[in-house]
Amino acid sequence: MSIQHFRVALIPFFAAFCLPVFAHPETLVKVKDAEDQLGARVGYIELDLNSGKILESFRPEERFPMMSTFKVLLCGAVLSRVDAGQEQLGRRIHYSQNDLVEYSPVTEKHLTDGMTVRELCSAAITMSDNTAANLLLTTIGGPKELTAFLHNMGDHVTRLDRWEPELNEAIPNDERDTTMPAAMATTLRKLLTGELLTLASRQQLIDWMEADKVAGPLLRSALPAGWFIADKSGAGERGSRGIIAALGPDGKPSRIVVIYTTGSQATMDERNRQIAEIGASLIKHW
């Protein structure tokens, strides 16, 4: 067993022997301040990774656009098919120029040779490549099948209805392509620590998230040296922004954090800054 596999296998073990965790309302004060600064709703939840206990939450059962955070769930569904012998990570998928959609920095470079399922998941999570996500959605049967996968996990809230990039439209009061912070946090925890996926697939999923290259201005910008984070960000229309993450000190994750916002007129930089400040408060009061 590799060191990384050992780390993920012992996530519940280490967490069980940690000192009790206590909620700190100071972080919620910052979440509410972010709402004021952005002029928009902000949803927040913080779960203990081992027990699933909610440590703090704000608007945990209000719907927010998922945006690209759905790509972690998508690759979880792909990995479940791999575990069941219905898919192979090494299978190569070929596609054409007509398949390319807006923001496809990886797939646009491989029109000639195609990409493997493993490479597509890596591109979808680490670079948020939209064509990679659409190609992977095709392998599982489309958005409705991802929703069905989530329902089978016990998540009857999260739903995907459309493809990239239309799913980022974020129309107010439109339930399409949305989740709730509580539902997303619980589902992410199941994917990373539950028995739904094999140990190898859980490790692969967290490795992809740990290698995320496009979430630097968010929670990662607030992390002290030595902290662990595996995350996936999302951005959408109407001032929408979000991030889902597993993080913790001492090089291992111990909490799940989900943050979503929508309806702001603020710039992307300002949305990023507010999420980073929430992260800084979380870490300060850990």
Rank of each mutant, 00 (worst) to 15 (best):
K109D: 13
E119R: 13
P217H: 13
D250H: 04
L205W: 09
L167N: 08
A40W: 02
L167R: 07
P65S: 07
K32Q: 06
E87S: 14
D212Q: 14
I45V: 06
G114W: 00
E26F: 06
R41S: 09
R92T: 03
A84E: 15
T158H: 09
R63W: 01
L197F: 10
L89D: 12
E108R: 07
W286V: 12
G141H: 13
E62G: 14
V117P: 02
V31K: 02
R176E: 00
T139F: 01
R189D: 03
P25N: 12
P217E: 10
Q274H: 03
K71C: 04
V31T: 04
F70P: 07
D174Q: 07
A211H: 01
A185S: 05
Q37E: 03
P25F: 03
T158A: 05
R81D: 07
H156A: 02
S96Y: 01
R81M: 00
L188M: 12
E277M: 14
G43V: 03
L89F: 04
V72Q: 15
Q203C: 06
D155P: 12
G234N: 09
V31R: 03
D129N: 11
Y103W: 09
T187S: 02
E56L: 06
A133L: 04
I206C: 13
L160C: 08
R241G: 09
S51K: 13
G114K: 07
G248F: 06
G141S: 09
L55C: 14
T116D: 08
A215C: 14
N50R: 05
E166L: 10
G226Y: 12
N272R: 11
F70W: 08
G251Q: 06
K32H: 01
S240M: 02
P181C: 00
Q204E: 10
D207T: 01
G39C: 00
K284M: 09
M127S: 10
P172D: 09
L89N: 00
I256L: 14
A280S: 00
R238F: 06
E56H: 02
K109E: 13
E119P: 14
A123W: 00
S80F: 04
M209C: 14
Q37T: 12
R238Q: 15
S201L: 13
S122N: 11
T126Y: 00
N173R: 11
T116L: 12
L100C: 12
T262C: 08
R202V: 14
M115G: 00
D231N: 04
P172Q: 04
L47R: 02
K190I: 15
Q265T: 11
L89M: 08
R118A: 15
V214H: 03
Q88G: 13
G263Q: 06
I171Y: 00
A211Y: 01
A133E: 02
E169G: 07
R81Y: 03
M115W: 00
N152T: 10
F149A: 12
S80R: 13
A77G: 07
I229V: 03
Y260G: 00
G90I: 13
E166I: 14
R255W: 08
A183Q: 09
D207N: 12
D231E: 06
V106T: 06
A222N: 13
L28Q: 02
K284Q: 04
Y95H: 00
Y260S: 00
L38A: 07
W227P: 02
E270M: 13
D113E: 15
G263S: 06
L89V: 03
A182R: 12
Q204H: 06
G85M: 02
E237L: 13
A77E: 05
T158Y: 01
D36H: 11
V157C: 15
D207K: 03
T126G: 04
G90K: 04
A148Q: 04
I256T: 14
A40N: 00
H156R: 05
E56V: 04
S254L: 01
L137N: 08
R189N: 12
Q37P: 13
A246D: 09
W163F: 03
A183R: 07
V82I: 09
R118H: 14
L73Q: 14
G52D: 03
M209W: 09
N173D: 02
G76N: 04
S254Q: 00
G239S: 06
A230R: 03
H285K: 05
L192I: 05
A183D: 06
V31W: 06
L197C: 01
T139D: 11
I243F: 03
A246I: 11
E166R: 10
I244C: 11
T186Q: 00
L196W: 08
L79D: 07
L89Q: 00
T138E: 11
M153W: 14
H156T: 03
S104N: 00
R176T: 05
T138N: 13
A276Y: 06
S122W: 15
L100H: 15
A148W: 15
D48F: 00
L192G: 09
G43S: 06
G154V: 02
L47G: 01
E270I: 14
S57Y: 07
I275Y: 08
K252G: 00
E175S: 02
A185V: 01
A200Y: 03
L196F: 14
R189C: 15
T69K: 02
E35K: 04
E210Q: 12
L38R: 10
A235K: 06
D113C: 13
K213D: 07
N152W: 12
A77N: 12
A266G: 14
I275W: 08
S122T: 09
D161S: 02
G142A: 12
E35F: 00
I125T: 15
V82K: 05
E164R: 14
A182M: 15
L150S: 04
E175V: 03
M66T: 07
K190G: 15
E210P: 03
S221K: 15
H110L: 14
Q88P: 12
P60Q: 02
G52R: 05
K30C: 14
Y44E: 09
G90H: 09
L160T: 09
A123K: 00
A200E: 04
R241E: 11
R189S: 11
K32F: 04
L218F: 01
V42Y: 00
P181E: 11
I243T: 10
M66E: 07
S104K: 03
W227F: 12
